[in-house]
């Protein structure tokens, strides 16, 4: 928990904080009960490899649907689904790349 806090504060206050991911994703997701990391792990478990995860995210953001979401129906009913379509294409792509980079497992196990 401590490590996550430190990590988050570094991300928040560092000079590099201002990337596509920071700009578009963090603020909105901060208030949700599931962290972006938790959601990422769900994506990873469902989609496996790097390309597959990225394509999966991209597809969901463009064509959100309850039956392909990794979140629970109750959650989706409460929050709705179409939250990502306003982010422009280029920003979205960059944000997804950063999202993967931040949470990927490859190279992090010991």
């Amino acid at each position: 928990m401590v490590r996550i806090l430190v990590f988050v504060s570094i991300v928040l206050f560092s000079s590099h904080a201002d990337d596509a991911y920071e700009r578009n994703c963090i603020k909105c997701h901060e208030v949700l009960p599931f962290s972006l990391r938790e959601i990422f792990m769900r994506y990873l478990a469902a989609y496996g490899g790097e390309n597959n995860v990225k394509v999966g995210l991209n597809h969901y953001f463009k064509y959100p649907a309850k039956d392909i979401s990794v979140m629970s129906i109750a959650f989706l009913n409460h929050y709705g689904i179409d939250h990502h379509s306003k982010i422009n294409e280029k920003e979205l792509k960059q944000a997804i790349d950063i999202y993967w980079q931040k949470h990927k497992v490859i190279g992090r196990l010991k």
Binding site: M41, G48, G49, E50, N51, V105, I106, L109, K110
Partner: peptide, 25 residues
């Protein structure tokens, strides 16, 4: 993960994991 990042080891065998794109994890 990532709070715990120690890959589970077993004395009876060696193991490894690969993703569906055949990349070594």
């Amino acid at each position: 993960f990532p709070a715990d990042n120690a890959y589970p080891r077993d004395s009876r065998f060696k193991s490894g994991i690969y993703d569906l794109e055949y990349v070594k994890i």
